[in-house]
Each structure stands twice: as C-alpha cells, then as structure tokens.
Deep mutational scan, measured.
Amino acid sequence: MKGKVVSYLAAKKYGFIQGDDGESYFLHFSELLDKKDEGKLVKGSMVHFDPTPTPKGLAAKAISLPLE
C-alpha cells in the first residue's frame, strides 16, 4: 500500500503514516527495509508498506521509500 508520513519522531524511532485507504498506521524504524532511508522519513514523504493489524491497532510493516 502507498501512504504519506504524517509524523516521525527520530529520537524515539516511531511515527505515523496515513494510508491511501485513509487509515492511520504506526510506523517504527525497525520496519524500514533500508535503514539509510531514515533521514527521508519526514512529514509528507511518500512510502510503500504492508498494512498489518496488531493487537494495538494498525501497523506499517516492510516500509520502503519510492525510487527517486
């Protein structure tokens, strides 16, 4: 699924993505496929991810940034 980063707290390594389906997904650095892309996780960045339901809500897994 595609989505847009709505927040990312680099110090805490987490944030949120708004998916194309309108839902909010929890984003964690550990799910970023290329850790070098962390600096690109800023508000408004477009990402691809696997939407995954968890006991705490919806989460983004296997997060990647589109090729530039």
Rank of each mutant, 00 (worst) to 15 (best):
G3H: 00
K43H: 10
K4H: 13
D20Y: 09
S30C: 12
T52S: 13
V6E: 08
D34W: 06
S45E: 08
F16P: 01
E23W: 10
D50Y: 15
P53V: 14
G19E: 00
K35N: 06
L9A: 10
V6D: 06
E31F: 09
E68F: 11
H48M: 15
T52I: 13
K35E: 09
V42E: 08
L33S: 06
M46W: 11
Y14A: 05
F26I: 06
L27W: 04
S7H: 11
V5D: 02
L41Q: 00
G57W: 04
L41K: 00
F49I: 02
E23F: 14
P51N: 04
L9P: 03
K13Q: 08
I17A: 04
K35F: 08
G15M: 02
S64I: 11
E31G: 06
E31S: 07
Y14D: 03
P55M: 09
A62F: 10
K13S: 05
K4R: 14
T54E: 05
E31A: 11
D21E: 03
S24C: 15
F29L: 10
V6F: 07
A10H: 11
K43Y: 13
I63F: 00
D21R: 03
K61N: 06
G22Y: 04
H48G: 06
K40M: 09
Y8Q: 02
L65A: 06
T52L: 13
P51I: 08
K56S: 09
M1W: 04
Y14T: 05
S7R: 14
L32E: 00
K2W: 13
G15Y: 03
P55R: 10
I63P: 02
V42Y: 11
L32G: 01
P53W: 15
M1I: 10
D34L: 06
K13Y: 05
K43N: 08
K56D: 07
V47H: 00
P51V: 09
M1C: 08
G39R: 13
K56M: 10
L65N: 03
E23L: 15
D21P: 00
P51Q: 04
K12A: 09
G57P: 03
Q18T: 10
T54L: 06
L27N: 00
D20H: 08
L32D: 00
S7C: 14
S45W: 05
S24R: 14
L67F: 12
G22N: 07
K2I: 11
K13V: 02
G3L: 00
H48R: 12
D21W: 03
K61Q: 07
L32V: 04
L27P: 00
Y14E: 06
L67G: 13
M1T: 06
E23S: 09
K2T: 14
G19Y: 01
F16I: 07
S64D: 05
V6P: 02
S7P: 00
L32M: 05
L33N: 06
K35C: 08
Y25C: 02
K2E: 07
K40Q: 07
L65S: 05
V47P: 01
G44L: 03
E23D: 06
F16N: 04
E23C: 12
K2D: 11
I63T: 03
D34F: 08
A62C: 12
H48E: 12
K56P: 03
S7Y: 15
V6W: 07
A11H: 12
D50S: 15
P51F: 08
D37S: 09
G3Q: 01
L33R: 09
G3E: 01
A62W: 07
K56G: 07
K36D: 12
K56C: 12
K2L: 10
M46Y: 12
G15F: 03
P53G: 08
D37A: 09
G19M: 02
A60L: 00
A59S: 09
F26Y: 09
E38R: 05
L9V: 15
K40C: 11
E38I: 09
Y8C: 04
Q18W: 11
S24P: 06
P53F: 13
I63D: 02
V5R: 01
S30G: 08
E23I: 11
D37Y: 06
A10C: 12
M1H: 06
K35R: 09
A11T: 12
P55K: 11
L32R: 00
L67T: 13
L27E: 00
S45L: 14
P55F: 09
K40W: 07
G3N: 01
E31K: 04
I17R: 00
A60C: 03
Q18N: 08
D50K: 14
A59I: 15
G57Q: 02
P66G: 14
G39C: 14
K40A: 08
H48S: 13
P51R: 07
A10R: 13
A10K: 14
A10I: 12
S24E: 09
S7G: 07
L9W: 15
T54M: 07
G19A: 04
K35T: 08
V5T: 02
P51M: 05
D21L: 03
E38F: 05
K43G: 06
D34P: 02
L58A: 06
D50A: 13
S45D: 03
D21H: 04
D34E: 08
F49A: 00
K40T: 04
T52K: 13
P53H: 14
G44P: 02
L27H: 01
K61G: 06
A60F: 00
Y8M: 05
F49S: 01
T54S: 08
L41H: 01
K2G: 10
K43Q: 10
E38S: 07
D21F: 03
D37T: 08
D34N: 13
K61C: 10
K43L: 08
L58Y: 08
K35Y: 09
G57N: 03
A10Y: 11
I17N: 00
V5N: 02
H28S: 12
Y25E: 00
L41M: 05
L9N: 15
H28I: 05
Y25D: 01
S7V: 15
G44C: 08
D21G: 04
S45G: 08
P51L: 05
V6Q: 10
